[in-house]
């Protein structure tokens, strides 16, 4: 079964998302306390997802994927600062979050085919939290974008 590949990929993607959220929260704490506070909270969600996936991996095994890490390194090549830097950081974090979302959707389909109700429930509840992470990133982006893109600093 190649489900182990996706378990590994998802766990790695969640790990990368947690790191990205935590880094963005830290880096922009001075200019956006909301990103600092909520970003840290959402990073903790992803760390919890990593731990929850460990229990599934105990059953199905895992093939580690380093693609999510490569993706994060490509997206975040250098630390960004300022309002425009925050916008770019939030957007790139969203790309990682979409990777996680797709992985949950794919895994969820496998869980249905396997009639694995525990895994289905996990995909539903944790996948819903990924959606909330994406919604938050989206909300931050639409709030910040018009000011940053249209008003000359």
């Amino acid at each position: 079964m190649r489900i182990a590949e996706y378990l590994g990929r998802l766990q790695s993607a969640e790990q990368q998302l947690a790191e990205a959220l935590a880094a963005v929260a830290r880096r922009h704490a001075d200019t956006s306390p909301e990103v600092a506070t909520t970003g840290s909270l959402l990073a903790a969600w992803s760390r919890q997802h990593v731990a929850a996936l460990a229990r599934v991996i105990a059953r199905y095994g895992e093939r580690h994927s380093n693609q999510p890490e490569q993706l994060r390194r490509t997206l975040f090549q250098e630390p960004r600062s300022g309002a425009f830097g925050l916008l770019r950081d939030l957007q790139d974090t969203s790309i990682l979050a979409y990777e996680v979302k797709l992985d949950w959707a794919i895994l969820s389909q496998a869980a249905r085919a396997l009639r694995d109700e525990d895994l289905q429930a996990l995909c539903r509840s944790l996948g819903a939290e990924t959606e909330r992470q994406i919604d938050w990133l989206h909300a931050q982006l639409v709030e910040a974008a018009p000011e940053i893109l249209t008003v000359p600093a």
């Binding site: 200019t31 956006s32 306390p33 300022g82 309002a83 639409v142 709030e143 018009p146 000011e147 940053i148 008003v151 600093a153």
Partner: peptide
């Protein structure tokens, strides 16, 4: 109407950034 009206602490931050 493209976003919620800006709250004061965000305005403070925009002033700080010169926006």
């Amino acid at each position: 109407a493209w976003k919620a009206p800006t709250h004061i602490m965000q305005m403070v931050e925009y002033i700080r950034q010169g926006l």
